[in-house]
């Protein structure tokens, strides 16, 4: 069990790191375009690559962001409960969110498969098959669904979901920042 836990955590972190690489790539691509224009050269398709990197940066770290309690929600109702009733509510919320995330992951996969079967090719200066830049979407959304189901299982077996532990940590950090 410990091994599985470590493997899953490493997987979520990898998604976060991949998202970070995507953001650096966005910066680098835009910078090369700006500098290139001054120097009189042009990177064909840099704007399309930038758009793909944005999609990657938005989806790959979904699970990592979730584990760090950085996805926000309205806790005005749930925050009033504690103990067993709170636990039951968290289970319900996790079940709903897991269902949505599974549908989301399935939709991303379905989109990629459509792009593959239609033989769809990017319209810009780089004639890349569209399913290739859609890979991060599938990985990111699948990882997100996994993270939600993971916490659903943890909570169902009586444990504390990851985002609640992370929320407490970051609340303490914020308090420290302001003092």
């Amino acid at each position: 069990m410990q091994g599985l836990r470590r493997a899953l955590d490493a997987l979520y972190l990898a998604g976060g790191v991949a998202g970070a690489i995507a953001i650096v790539a966005i910066g680098a691509l835009v910078l090369v375009q700006v500098l290139g224009r001054q120097a009189g050269f042009h990177v064909p398709g840099a704007d399309d690559l930038t758009a793909y990197a944005v999609a990657a940066s938005a989806t790959l770290p979904l699970a990592y962001t979730f584990r760090h309690a950085a996805h926000i929600r309205v806790d005005i109702v749930i925050g009033r409960f504690s103990g067993r009733s709170r636990h039951a509510l968290e289970l319900l919320v996790l079940a709903i969110a897991s269902a949505v995330a599974l549908l989301f992951a399935y939709a991303c996969l379905d989109t990629l498969i459509d792009s593959w079967t239609f033989g769809e090719v990017a319209q810009g200066m780089l004639a890349v098959p569209i399913w290739i830049p859609q890979i991060p979407l599938v990985f990111g959304s699948a990882l997100f669904a996994l993270a939600l189901v993971d916490d659903l299982v943890v909570a169902a077996s009586g444990g504390e979901p990851s985002y609640r532990r992370a929320a407490e940590r970051s609340a303490q950090e914020r308090a420290a920042e302001e003092v």
Binding site: R73, V74, I76, V77, I78, L89, E90, I96
Partner: peptide, 12 residues
Amino acid sequence: LALGVWIGAALM
């Protein structure tokens, strides 16, 4: 949203 589902998932 009131239930406390994460906002992106609630919109979906």
